[in-house]
Structure formats: C-alpha cells, structure tokens
Write a protein that binds this DNA or RNA. Structure first.
Ligand SMILES: [Zn+2]
Ligand SMILES: [Zn+2]
Length: 261
DNA sequence: ATCATCGGACTATCAAATTG
DNA sequence: AATTTGATAGTCCGATGATA
C-alpha cells in the first residue's frame, strides 16, 4: 500500500497523483535531495537537529532573451497536429498524436492530493495529528517502518543529532565561495540523512564505468511523460551545478557536490 | 541489513512565440 | 492582450553502493 489513496484498481497502471513540491526547499534538504516542507525549521532539519542551518537558498533567476524557434501548435482540436507555423516541418517527430482524444479528460486529479501533509504556511508547527503519515515512508530508502513520520511528540525519540558544531554563530549558509573546506564530520557515525553528513566524499559509487553504459537506472515514468519531457524536449536536469550556459555554480545548492574526482 | 549518496525522473515557473 | 508552448530551474524519489 504505497499510497493511502486507493487507486481505482482498474487501470493497468495507476496514473499516480503527482508529486507535490515545496516552493523552496531549505539548503539542507536541497543539498541532500530530500523532501522539505514549508515550515522553516523544516521537519527534516529539526529531526536531525540542524534546524539552525535550515534556511532557504536563493532561487536563480530564469534566463531571459533566449530564442526558442517556432512553436508547434498542439492545443486546439487534433487537427494540424504539429507543424511550425511556417517553414518546413522540423523533421520527423511530429506526431503521432492521440487523434481522437484531444482531452484525456482527467476526471478527478485534484491539484495537490499527495499522500503528504502540508501544513498551512501560517500554521504553528503541527506537532502531531498528521493525517497522512509520511510519504517518504512508503518507500524511503531506509525502509523504516517509521512509527512517527514527523514531529515527534517526544524529543527524546530524536536525540539531538550531534552534527559538527556550526561553522559560526550565524547559522546561515555561507556562500560556497567563502566556505573553504567543510569540516568533514569526523565521527558523526550514528546515522543521518544526506545533508547532515553532506560531505563531498570522494569514493562514492555509481560510476557506470568507462563502458558508458549505465546499469539501468530508474525505470519510472508514470505520468512524467505527459508532464513534459520524454518527448522531443527531454527536460534534462539543469542541476548538477553550473548548468551548461551559466557555468557558474549558482548558490542555492551545489547539487551533490561531486562530479569531480 | 541499514544507511548514505546522488542520478535522474518529475514538478513548477515563466519567458518567448503564437494567436485573437 | 491573452493564451500556449516549451525550456529552465528546482525538488526529491528511489536505485545503488558502502558499511555496520
Ligand atoms: Zn528542509
Ligand atoms: Zn531544513
């Protein structure tokens, strides 16, 4: 039972709701690629005792002035499927569109009904009563049953994670530029998600070797296809750090900080 | 067996292109 | 001006590997 939301067990593949994202994840969560929430000392940070450093980074501004070329008309009836308003067709990709199903007519599909519970922005830390226990638990890598998803009533349950002392009095994330070498957690042993231990380790894994053939990464593509990518535009992942054009590592987060030996 | 790391799927946003 | 398209920027799922 991955989701508390009983799918209409009738379709071969559950359409799957849609992943809801926070507008801005805190630096810790972002760096760890983990779920964050709107509350500032986000749950995760609180859980790991790093609430002090729970701050949101800065969103990069979208590039402007980039040309895009002719658009393909897609909306409208399924008539002229897609061809650049003028000029010759792109090449082939065009389309094998639906033909008789201009609108899938997705019946329900709320806007954010994900097994996650997002407290209201102005809500005083829920603290409990979380209706929808964790979403991460459903498959969080740890596979922990996760008795209590969020906000432990008893702090004792979560012993203040003993991360290395903060770099300074100010808990705000210092610009990577002036932040030389992050003190590698010497003995944080215990356990921690990514962020806390977020250290640019070097001997990581997943190298896909020189053969250049990935072992077969994920294979998930529920509704992402319709979301946007897969097609001619393969979204691509802008992160990784510098994006191709910018080249200059932004600031929000340096991604997993790795990539280079 | 459990935890940490991070590749990349998926989402949200928004400017350019197109249409009215 | 309004709408649509499509790419950028960002979040975070979940596979993969390291360790305990
Ligand atoms: Zn967070
Ligand atoms: Zn946080």
């Amino acid at each position: 039972m991955p989701y508390p939301y009983p799918p209409p067990q009738g379709l071969p593949a559950a359409p799957r709701p849609k992943r809801k994202q926070v507008k801005m994840a805190c630096t810790n969560c972002a760096g760890a690629c983990k779920r964050c929430d709107d509350s500032r000392p986000c749950e995760r940070c609180v859980k790991y005792g790093i609430a002090d450093t729970c701050v949101d980074g800065t969103r990069k501004e979208r590039k402007k002035g980039i040309k895009r070329g002719p658009y393909k008309r897609k909306s409208k009836f399924g008539s002229n499927e897609a061809f650049p308003t003028a000029s010759s067709a792109p090449t082939g990709e065009a389309s094998t569109e639906p033909t008789t199903t201009p609108a899938p007519t997705y019946p329900p599909m709320p806007e954010s009904y994900y097994p996650y519970y997002y407290p209201h922005p102005g809500y005083p830390t829920p603290g409990h009563e979380v209706p929808q226990p964790n979403g991460e638990a459903v498959a969080n890598g740890n596979g922990h049953p996760m008795p209590h998803p969020y906000y432990p009533l008893h702090p004792a349950v979560y012993p203040s994670y003993p991360p290395y002392s903060h770099p300074g009095p100010v808990a705000y994330a210092p610009p990577p530029a002036m932040m030389p070498p992050p003190p590698p957690p010497p003995d944080v042993n215990g356990k921690a998600d990514d962020t806390v231990t977020a250290a640019p380790k070097s001997k990581k894994k997943r190298k896909v070797g020189e053969d250049g053939a990935p072992k077969a990464k994920k294979a998930k593509a529920t509704n992402g296809e319709i979301a946007n990518g897969v097609g001619p535009t393969a979204v691509g992942s802008s992160h990784t750090n510098g994006t191709a054009v910018n080249g200059v590592n932004g600031a929000a987060d340096q991604r997993h900080a790795v990539s280079s030996a």
